[in-house]
Design a protein around this nucleic acid. Sequence first.
DNA 1: TTCAGTGCAAAGGATTTGCAACACC
DNA 2: GGTGTTGCAAATCCTTTGCACTGAA
Lengths: 162, 162
Amino acid sequence: MDVTRRKATKGRPKGGDVTRAIEKFRDVLHGRALKLSTVREAIVRAALTYDGHFNVEDLLRVLKNQGVSQAHLATVYRAIPLLIEAGIIQPTMLSRSHGNYYEAAFEREHHDHLVCKVCGRVIEFHSEAMEALQREIAARHHFEIEEHVHELLGRCKTCRKS
Amino acid sequence: MDVTRRKATKGRPKGGDVTRAIEKFRDVLHGRALKLSTVREAIVRAALTYDGHFNVEDLLRVLKNQGVSQAHLATVYRAIPLLIEAGIIQPTMLSRSHGNYYEAAFEREHHDHLVCKVCGRVIEFHSEAMEALQREIAARHHFEIEEHVHELLGRCKTCRKS
DNA sequence: TTCAGTGCAAAGGATTTGCAACACC
DNA sequence: GGTGTTGCAAATCCTTTGCACTGAA
């Protein structure tokens, strides 16, 4: 009935996925008369292959390690809205953490998060029953949901013992 | 079974509530060897009687209108964590808005939010079924929930027509 | 060749902090 | 009276922007 499962960091993009994502990105850019630069392509790759949640600095670090030109923070910031637009990444809350965090989203199923306030571990979950309930509540208020934020914060299995 | 209802801005604190809240606040402060200054008391009153969601500037504006000394931003920032600690206010996401927002929380029931991305309207909701489902999901992951963030973002009744 | 993209530095906005004067308990 | 609190200004952190130069189409 209610399929809650851990997707974890399986389903990381394989080569072909990255290629398709870049094609998708190119389309989005073309649609806006923008260009696909080598730097942007590198940013897409870095974002898609990043394991877990990241912020702009994290992404920059990866790019630097790969020796992508001088890789500048401003460039990454400027690319972020485009990556979101193209569905390459999606913003995630990780609530009170300062700054914004993102995660790869290309061809991944929707999910929400359990976040451990002690160790920072993030567990993904998806519940169809929950989604249905949300739709029901929205309908009751004649509200049209475009997106939602749902995070359960607390202590994970390991940390609740200490 | 599932009681979803609009709590709206009814249930605003009455005089007695404010007094009790201040007592509670005093206790929390005492417990940490801190003091209840007149400025802090004014901040508590302003927060409790504020109608709806507010940020630090909003609160400061109220204080200034009341002629509370020179009321300084830094002072309000310094008080916020204490108000949260005492359960006077709670942070609310209002997702992508820059800066943090809060709302009065003293002796109010827990609720979550529907937020209109067009007009900014905030509708409160509470669903026991939803809460139960969250507990179930947490249990499945041996996770202990301390708090959660749940916001449904989209278009309200009025704005979805335009 | 022509715009868009990039690096860099400087600007911005939100929040924090160091410090001397001031106010609770 | 001693310690925490406040106002103020300066400092920080994250993000955005202006500009001259480089690069994609």
